[in-house]
Design a protein around this nucleic acid. Sequence first.
DNA 1: ATCAAATGAATCAATATAGATTCATTTGAT
DNA 2: ATCAAATGAATCTATATTGATTCATTTGAT
Lengths: 183, 183
Amino acid sequence: MIKSEATDPLLLAVAMAMVDNPRASLLELARAVGVSKATLYRMCPTRDNIIERLFSESVRQFDRVIAAAELDTAPVTHAFRALIEGHLNHKELFVFVSNTWEPQLLETSDTEHRWAEFEAIFDQFFLRGQQEGFFRIDISAAALSELMIGMLSALMNAERSGRIARKDMLDTMEKMFLTGAQR
Amino acid sequence: MIKSEATDPLLLAVAMAMVDNPRASLLELARAVGVSKATLYRMCPTRDNIIERLFSESVRQFDRVIAAAELDTAPVTHAFRALIEGHLNHKELFVFVSNTWEPQLLETSDTEHRWAEFEAIFDQFFLRGQQEGFFRIDISAAALSELMIGMLSALMNAERSGRIARKDMLDTMEKMFLTGAQR
DNA sequence: ATCAAATGAATCAATATAGATTCATTTGAT
DNA sequence: ATCAAATGAATCTATATTGATTCATTTGAT
């Protein structure tokens, strides 16, 4: 288990509030998480500051999850499961990223190029799976990447609205994605 | 072919701009679609007005697509394909809805309860497919609904950012979703 | 029970945005 | 070439939001 300070729960709550209402004012965000505008201000003085910190926390999280999954060495099924489990253990940041991320947003900050990297890392993983004869080759590795992220995001959003149960998510991902993607 | 006036292309362009930057001001939206603030104002005087019209257009679109797919009578594979094709033919509204829709947004307007209806309609379709022995039953109909929408949404977003090609989308949906979801 | 740290409520100036209007210019059909 | 419709640029007021500060109250550790 890699040592890592957990992300401020308040920050995570704000992330979810932003996902639920992207156009909320800072006052609305504060109220949505049950805190005064001042406390929110003390955590992060500006909105950009909030977003910066969320993206930077997300990058760290993705780094850890990807490292733990050993995407380029572990057996494909093991790596896949570790990847999904890792993200499921940090739902807020994943939900925030998958709902907030827009390619056009790229011009910001330092974090920018890291997302292109993650994309490439996922693509590379599926490419390896294809080369090893595990994944089907009549769907591009890029499409497999996008589908994996999209399916996981869909399940997390569905769980947040009470449509599906937490305990079913990993199993559902393995059944749907792997049987769909397998050669 | 059901008769139906097409949605104002400007409105659709604004929808995409809102998806790309949900916090954009009206001036920014106008610029993003290459039009002056005044023209945008003439189309819809207020932001709420824009959103209302987009949701209402989307409802009409969904109604048509669902009707054309004959979800409760046609053979499951035919209905599924028609559903996907129908949405692929009206990408903007689908992308807008799938990126903008938040359960918490429900308290608005007239359109509200229609989305719960659509959800129920999709669930019912997958339930029928399960009862007919076509879809696997170890994943809930609700989860299948969410995955179908999520996968389609993921592919459309990926196409918008140039990651995958339009022509592959239907095929990819059929391969990934159906083989994953089939019993 | 005491005291420092954390929080909430309120306020404030500066700025941004929404909604609306005006007028000059451009476009497109004839 | 003419003329009506459509558009863009600019302006304006009212309101909302941001970023920042103050002060009283609450909380939690000791």
